[in-house]
Design a binder for these strands. Sequence first.
DNA 1: GGCCAGGACACCA
DNA 2: TGGTGTCATGGC
Length: 216
Amino acid sequence: MGLLEIYRKLLNHFGKQNWWPADSEFEMIVGAILTQCTSWKNVERVMENMKAKELINPKHMMEIDRENLRRIIKPVGYYNSKTEKLKAFVEFLYNRYNGDLYDFLAQPLPLLRKQLLSIYGIGPETADSIILYAANKPSFVVDAYTVRIFSRLGFIDKDTNYDKLKRFFEENLPRDVELYKEYHALIDELGKNFCRKEPHCKKCPLNEFCGFANSY
DNA sequence: GGCCAGGACACCA
DNA sequence: TGGTGTCATGGC
């Protein structure tokens, strides 16, 4: 089996996911930071609240004081560090791009990734998510589900590092933005539904490929 | 009531 | 370079 075969199985089973659910590029980025190690359901209500306060906007995000921002995002958890991360992003945007997000996102992929990784609070997964879903450039996103699922399927070792796993997908898939977007979303959907506790494995769409499912 | 969620960073050897 | 502790609330 190949990566495309697995992709088709997942697409057939779950249908199109149409990630990322956001009305703007900035909203996508705010969501990416808030959802770090946090369930999306937990993030959604906070995002609605932020929209109501017109905070999904680089200028307003620059202007709000940290204490207020902390209070608003508190329900997502890690609110102290996430406040600093949101501030770090908009401060970068204003210092380097005069607050123009589109100007920033228009940078060539390698430069954009390097700059994103230089911002406090943006690591490899968040950077690649922003590149793929906000800038619409082909950078495959790896997350904890990707590691868990593809090591169980026998493609990689479970301690494979981020960059190596990212390269594995990019070297074995057509370089296609929409494919990358949908594939990552489908992996996430699979991970949420099936790759946690063993009993769920029976109905997993990848059951036939999975050594883990056949081992008990 | 325990486990975990769409990670990243600081610190250490 | 890689391993571990820390951040923290809410849903299931």
